[in-house]
Design a protein around this nucleic acid. Sequence first.
DNA 1: ACAACATCTTAGCAAGGGCTAAATTTAGGT
DNA 2: ACCTAAATTTAGCCCTTGCTAAGATGTTGT
Lengths: 148, 148
Amino acid sequence: MCPPDDLNAEARRHAERFQRVREAHQTELAEDYVELIAHLIEETGEARVVDLAGWLGVTNATVNNTIQRLQRDGLVTTKPYRSIFLTDAGRELAEQSRKRHDIVREFLIALGVDSQTADIDAEGIEHHVSSATLKAFAKFVNKARRST
Amino acid sequence: MCPPDDLNAEARRHAERFQRVREAHQTELAEDYVELIAHLIEETGEARVVDLAGWLGVTNATVNNTIQRLQRDGLVTTKPYRSIFLTDAGRELAEQSRKRHDIVREFLIALGVDSQTADIDAEGIEHHVSSATLKAFAKFVNKARRST
DNA sequence: ACAACATCTTAGCAAGGGCTAAATTTAGGT
DNA sequence: ACCTAAATTTAGCCCTTGCTAAGATGTTGT
């Protein structure tokens, strides 16, 4: 009797979007960690638990837990009481995250947001930007650059 | 002996940003729920567990859990086996979330992102946009509107 | 009125991600 | 070489956010 009702279709689409956001959440922390680890290795030669804890604003114990999970997931390697290294997968994820982060940050600045706010917001936004949107951001940055 | 070292200052700023993102995460779900509840009440007259579950893509039991927490936190009211209502605080949060969501979505579209991608990305981005950035987004949308 | 069905709730489980406190190991200074 | 301080790990706790399965309650059609 009922026509295939559009309300359900809308609900379904909505639900899909939510599932996607939930999935993104699961990779956020991993991205932040590998990005930071790559940065520390580049800048200081090594990544230690205590440094990560300081940069992330959490305790050493928390970092340790998380590193175990990242190791389980094949993103980092480490031996007891030693510093942390990225696997190939970890390095790749780190590189990709860094690029995205930079584009988002530059985009916000090009849009007229002050650089401190850009730093803060980029940290949250970067994990939720699809490649299509990222492309649009990059295009805008380039256009803004050319016109100055 | 050491000069107040800038590495630590950078680390401190980084840690603050992270803490802010972590805080945002704690309010995300609440925002999504009240936004959806407001929408359902407006469109269908009431918000029921089963509808929320369908729109969010989770089970009824999960919705129920979350609603308990939201009630504890003063955002919704409900009685056993009855539908869900927003408190004043809940309504306010819903309204604010809806506005932010809409601006982000319109902004992405104005930037040239296709509307389906805009729908998806807005869902993730909206919770991480400061009021300064939101203002910049709104300004861009208005400018784009005037120039067409 | 009441049986069947839908909805809601409860109970119990798991993983993620945070904490503190208490080992344990490593590294540095004398 | 050894003692101490720093770093790391472990253990045990908490809350959130998801799930399934089972029980309780409402609603509806005949």
